[in-house]
């Protein structure tokens, strides 16, 4: 799956680990279940570690372990399922997560803008999305009303010199 990060397609160095069995070499992304079951072994690895949260697996489950993860992938099982927008904001704004926050699953062009605002900075997208499309999606709405994880100046602030 192509990966967009910082406005460009980048090589994805990460591998999703299976639920059990030996871990692949290098950076791996594990499930929440596997993290719960093998915490110590996983933390002892030298290669970077990531975790994937499914819809229904809330960030508070890993809030105390965030320094262990270089990547957190949040799953959109279908684009209509918007739980991960809340998860992303919680990770950024409440739990202070600074690493890569990756959107995975049903990630469509017309949701990229909202994802970016909620704190995602990496997107696993289908072949059909181009970098121009990504840029367009970022730029087509020039003003925003709400504060979110992207720190953009809101209209309320702009009106009142905030």
């Amino acid at each position: 799956m192509p990966l967009i990060k910082d406005g460009a397609f980048v090589e994805d160095k990460w591998t999703y680990a299976d639920e059990e069995g030996p871990l692949p070499e290098g950076p791996v992304i594990v499930s929440l279940t596997r993290w719960h079951n093998e915490k110590e072994a996983l933390a002892a690895r030298t290669a970077p570690l990531g975790i994937k949260l499914l819809s229904g697996e809330e960030p508070k489950e890993i809030a105390g372990d965030l320094d262990k993860f270089a990547v957190i992938a949040l799953d959109f099982p279908m684009f209509k399922n918007g739980r991960a927008y809340s998860y992303a904001r919680l990770l950024r704004e409440r739990y202070g997560y600074k690493g890569e926050l990756r959107a995975t699953g049903d990630v469509l062009r017309d949701q990229l803008f909202f994802m970016h605002r909620c704190g995602f900075d990496a997107y696993e997208v289908s072949q059909r999305i181009t970098i121009d499309g990504w840029k367009e999606a970022m730029d087509e709405i020039s003003v925003v009303y709400q504060p979110a994880s992207d720190g953009r100046k809101t209209i309320f602030q702009a009106r009142h010199g905030g």
């Binding site: 918007g82 927008y85 904001r89 803008f113 909202f114 909620c118 009303y145 709400q146 979110a148």
Partner: peptide
């Protein structure tokens, strides 16, 4: 109305 317009977190409820 303004707060809810294109709200990034709540557009896929």
């Amino acid at each position: 109305r303004q707060w809810s317009t294109l709200h990034p977190e709540f557009s896929f409820l």
